[in-house]
Structures are given as C-alpha cells and as structure tokens.
Design a protein around this nucleic acid. Structure first.
Lengths: 209, 209
DNA sequence: GTCTATAACCTGATAGAC
DNA sequence: GTCTATCAGGTTATAGAC
C-alpha cells in the first residue's frame, strides 16, 4: 500500500509499452506473442509480466490509450458550436488524416478488436455517448434528417469511409497502384482537400431516386 | 496417382470446409482453433487433418475460394465494354452490396489476412492483373486523369470505401445507431441507390481547390 | 472414414538466482 | 530490476484401434 512512483517514463516500462503498441497495432491481439513484444523492446519476456501482470492487461492499456488518443485529437473540433458544418468537416478531415498518416494501422486495429468483443470495449470507453452528444452529430442530424430525408448514419459512414478506408486497405491500395510510402501519403494529402468537396456534394444531394 | 473422385460434396469434406469458412471468416486465422472448426462441422478434430493436411492448408483453400467467389461476382460487370461508366457503377454497387449482405464478414476477413502477409495472397491470386485490365478501370482512368486531374485511385478508394466500409465497421455502426440486423440491412439497401448518385457527384467535381 | 489417445509443439506465466 | 530455467495449459498434428 505504499505510495509508489507511478510516474511516466520508467524507461523500461515505457519501452515495453511502446513495443507492445507497435506489435499489437501491427498484428492484433490474437496474432501477437508476448515474446514478440519482449524482443521488440529489447528485454526479456519475464519483464513484461513483472511490469504488467499479463498479456491481456497490457493489451487493455494499449487499447485504452489508443482510443483516447484518437478521441482527444478530434473532440474539440466536434464540440465547437461556433463553426459551421462545412468548416468542421474541413478541420476534421485534415486533423484525422494527419493522425492516420502517423498511425496508419490504428483504424484497422480498433475495428479488429471491437469486432471480436463488440460490447466490452465500446461500453468500457463509452464511445457512443462521447460522440453522440457532440454538436457535430447534431448538425449532421439536422441536415440529413430534415433536408435530405435520409438516415444520418449514411453521412457518417461516408465521412468515415472516405477518411479511414484507404488506410484500412492500405496494402491493397499500394499494391494496385504501385505506390511506395511517399506516394501513398501524397494521395492522402490530396484527399484532405478533396473529401470536404465531395462531402459537400453528398450534403446537397437530395434523394431523388 | 490413381485418379480419385475429386468431385464436390464428399459430404464430410464439404461440411468441414463450410464450417471452416464460417469460423475463419468470423474470427480470422490466428484466433481460430481447429477444434472450433471440427465442432462446428460436427466431426472429430482428426478428420480435419485427414482431409486437409493442416490448418494452414485448409485456410489457404478457404481464402482462395472466397477471393474467387468475390471476383467472379463482379467480373462480368467490370469487363463489359458496352455499358457506360455510370451504368456500370449502378450495377456494380447493387451486385457488390448484395454479396456483402449475404457475407458481411468477407471484406474484413480479406483485408485482415492480406495485411498479415502482403504479397503471399495478392501475388498468389493475381488480383492486380485481373482487375487492372478491366474496361472499368480504363474508364475510371479516362475520367479521373483527363477531366478531373486527380489520381484515379482516388475514385476507386471512394467507390470501395462507400460500399465496403459500413460492413467493415458494422459492429460500431450498429452500436452507434442502435440498429438491429434488419435496420442495418435496410440502410445498405438504401445505399444501393445513394452511392451511384454520390459517385456521380465525385466524377463531376473538378479539383477547384 | 471416423474415432480415441497421445505425441510434439507453442505460448503465457512464474520461481528463483543474480 | 533483469535474467535463466521451467511449469502449466492449450493447440496442432499424428498413430493406431475400430
């Protein structure tokens, strides 16, 4: 019960966490062996259990931090009640793509783990509440429901899909287009400008049928 | 070397394959245990090795069949030189969404396994060649390159993202929107009409910046 | 062809020396 | 705190009876 120094950068503890993040994000929970993490960190396997009691505990930490990192990076934008929807889209797309260029495996990682255990993570983090109440979602609901007569989720799915899908399908995209790392990133940069324009189209297209 | 009856529906062999397809698609290679497959098929574990030498061999078969099933379902549409691009899009979206409503885990499964081993599967199946030469891709290149002055891959990514992303993010989408199975499928049906309209917008949007 | 039993291996976790 | 050695449990694969 003594008050330990639970500060950050215990050096080795932090190194193991970084290694864990890298491997977990790359391969997912099931395909990751604790030995991979230890090796990546440059330490012995036993250290992993010394600092974090188990593979699962370590994973939970990584997952939580990753989700929070992402949510934090977009929350202010989503909640701002001053900016118009179109402005918000531009900001959001830019911020989001920046994060993903630095962490390309993030979306797949999250989707992969949420899929295995639909409620555990979502409920633990309360993603729904945190997002559903943002001013942004209200604005979407307004436009989609009243003006466009379609389900607001249609808009959200397009927004997310346009931003996230290229990163999820990155290996295929790179292969099909003969794109190296830089070329891929250049395409993503180009999308920062394009997606808001396309979405503007989506938001002004009546469902004429 | 005797010529065996390698026909279909060896009954048990086929049952094991069906069970394997179900479990592999649901959980991915790493998270699947051969016991799960055997149990799902209603047979003993040893049978799996009797018919298919190993877990990996069985998996390869499932993967190959799944990819081929998908490619086959859209190839005629993509190759038809008579239909316009817009017509092709309408047909493609409808066909594709139909396949996915029946096999919602398919895209995630494929992306997940391609990610683990970028070249093995892609090269084995020759996805690139099979798609790159279709008339459809030519048409896209035409419009994107000449009229829109953007990378053709931008169009492909939007098309694929709009169709596929909702299925990849299905658990999240259902949770965020409080959607049961039927409600989700209804949204996907709605998208059959919406996506071609949105894409028409994409294909007529100059990169004004 | 199908099953039971077991081998061979792998992985997460711990005990104990340093 | 860090390492070596090892255990305990689970998983794939095979041998052999039926």
């Amino acid at each position: 019960m003594k008050k330990e120094a639970v500060e950050k950068n215990s050096s080795t503890e932090e190194k193991i966490k970084e290694a864990a993040r890298k491997v977990f994000l790359q391969k997912g929970y099931a395909a990751t062996r604790t030995r991979d993490i230890a090796e990546e960190a440059g330490f012995n396997l036993a250290l992993l259990n010394y600092y974090f009691r188990s593979k699962e505990k370590l994973f939970d930490i990584i997952m939580l931090e990753t989700m929070q990192q992402f949510l934090h990076s977009v929350r202010e934008i989503l909640s701002d009640e001053q900016t118009s929807l179109q402005e918000k889209l531009e900001l959001l797309v830019e911020r989001y793509i920046d994060v993903l260029i630095k962490n390309p495996e993030m979306p797949f990682f999250i989707l992969n783990e949420v899929r295995q255990d639909p409620k555990k993570l979502v409920s633990k983090i309360g993603l729904k509440q945190k997002l559903a109440e943002t001013y942004f979602i209200q604005q979407i609901r307004e436009v989609a429901g009243k003006e466009l007569a379609m389900h607001p989720m249609q808009i959200i799915m397009n927004l997310m899909g346009m931003i996230v899908f290229p990163f999820i399908a990155k290996p295929i995209v790179q292969h099909m287009g003969n794109l190296d790392q830089d070329a891929f990133n250049a395409l993503m940069e180009e999308r920062k400008k394009l997606i808001p324009i396309w979405l503007h189209g989506v938001l002004t297209t009546k469902k004429t049928k």
